[in-house]
Nucleic acid binder design. Structure first.
Lengths: 146, 146
DNA sequence: CCTTTACCTCAACTTAACTTGAGGTTTTAG
DNA sequence: CTAAAACCTCAAGTTAAGTTGAGGTAAAGG
């Protein structure tokens, strides 16, 4: 194997994801790779970072579809550099801040609202958070569940 | 229809959920109701609050299974009162606070980490948040770059 | 050389939280 | 009284993000 090429198993191990997940990401166009003579996947090192970013984004509650969207602005024919990744992450930073603020509002109204009588009233932020940051009901707030 | 009984359609409208969702919640044991002479569901008013709590909890990222768990401590044969709901919500308040803190840590490391070279390092909180609040399975055994 | 891993593809299964549809009944409004 | 609207049950479909398994090939090690 050439010096800087990884098999799917190696990438899986280094990234802490399963081989099948990598297959899946590839099928979704989130990662790419070449093949060796025996038709086995060979990944360049920057796939490691890509997978890391995928995982980080997922922890923020970002879906694979959105991640794919975001990745689409990365350079297609050279390895992304710091600037590329930073541009990407700054958008998510914003999103994440909004989500945090939304959850804070929710939390701050929680005890009062569930405990009080206002829950069925249209003014209550717990009951009725028609939140611009959370159009159609807040995006799925994905808790990292065991 | 008796003074304080609601049809499924009325509950749906008041709570902003679909009729099918209410059927679904009933099937999961999250809400209960009686039937009228024609076998149609009749809900007592406190189901409104229950549904409101379900929706609020979902916005916090709590699953229906967990909500059901939490509901199981509510009094079975009287309408829950403020104390009951408050006890319930205080546990969630705690959970939500932890979730918020986790996301804050994630956010605060985000720009630096995705943009910098540390992403594949085992110290990076974005890449490797072995966070008890984010129990993503057993530690991914991340090897630092060879 | 031979055997054990690792890898390949493709299809089907999984869970959560619902939605949609079919086929039939009950209520309500005019 | 009748027609529309609301309701009923039960089965099957939907989406996300993978996992699992079958049947077969490639690579690695002793």
């Amino acid at each position: 194997m050439k010096t800087q090429e990884f098999s799917v198993g190696q990438v899986a191990k280094r990234c802490g994801v399963s081989v099948s997940a990598l297959h899946f990401y590839e099928s979704k166009g989130l990662i790419a790779c070449g093949r060796n003579g025996g038709n086995q996947r060979r990944f360049s090192p920057d796939v490691i970072r890509r997978v890391a970013v995928i995982k980080a984004a997922q922890k923020m509650g970002i879906s694979l579809a959105e991640i794919q969207q975001a990745f689409s602005v990365l350079p297609k024919h050279r390895a992304p550099d710091k600037k590329d990744w930073q541009a990407l992450s700054s958008g998510w930073h914003q999103q994440l801040s909004e989500r945090i603020e939304y959850l804070q509002r929710l939390r701050d109204s929680l005890t009062g609202c569930i405990g009080c009588g206002c829950l069925s009233m249209s003014k209550c932020p717990v009951y009725n958070p028609d939140d611009k940051l959370a159009p159609q009901g807040p995006g799925p707030v994905i808790l990292d569940k065991a």
